[in-house]
Amino acid sequence: MSETRQVIIQATNVKKTYHDNGVPVQAVRGISLTIYQGDFLVIAGPSGSGKTTLLNMLGALDPPTEGEVIFEGEPLYTKTRKQLADLRLEKIGFVFQAYNLIPVLSALENVEFPMMLKGIPEKERRQRAQAILTDLGIGDLAHKRPNEMSGGQQQRVAVARAIGNNPTVVLADEPTANLDSVTGNALLDLMERMNREKHITFVFSSHDPKVIQRARRLVRLRDGVIVEEEVQK
């Protein structure tokens, strides 16, 4: 790993404590991690190891209880709620385990949604969204609603939505968890291609071996701490 690569996110000794019915639960116990431009990084670990919590803290969704997250050189959680929303809109794409598409919108409109929030004119965003869907092999499903699509198709739409605004980084939380192995592999092929061709940085949280095998950087978590970090390819 070249240390001269541009740093996108730097987490320093981040900790997160939740309160479950008044009982404090330490989900992340002090993690320092740097994400570089072009990374294809997998945060692996068993359930409850703190993967999703870490991903949320990196993605401007959940402030750490302690520690600091720097995004492109600026502290993340000193920003206002609106600034954080703008940052998510401009710089971060999310892919969730449960697809999390907006059910009342068609595939095309779901992909357009962040573009619309960004203020891209309707004609332009429609063309862009259609082009992305076509690129991801689901151009013919543009006018289908999420409930008319399979899980794999929905997750492709979720990827299309995540990359629609040309984000700096895509954070994918267990993206293959609800997919069969063929569909999961196809989706990973797609994201690898995006990473390779469009230089989009991907950070996954997963315990799926398919995903872990593809990682170029692998970070293993257990009980809220990093237990292993390796560069696989």
Binding site: G59, K82, A85, L89, E90, I92, N100, I102
Partner: peptide, 14 residues
């Protein structure tokens, strides 16, 4: 949940 999705992709609460 749906509102959570909208907020997470960058929509503001306003």
């Amino acid at each position: 949940r749906e509102f959570g999705i909208m907020l997470s992709v960058g929509m503001t609460n306003e």
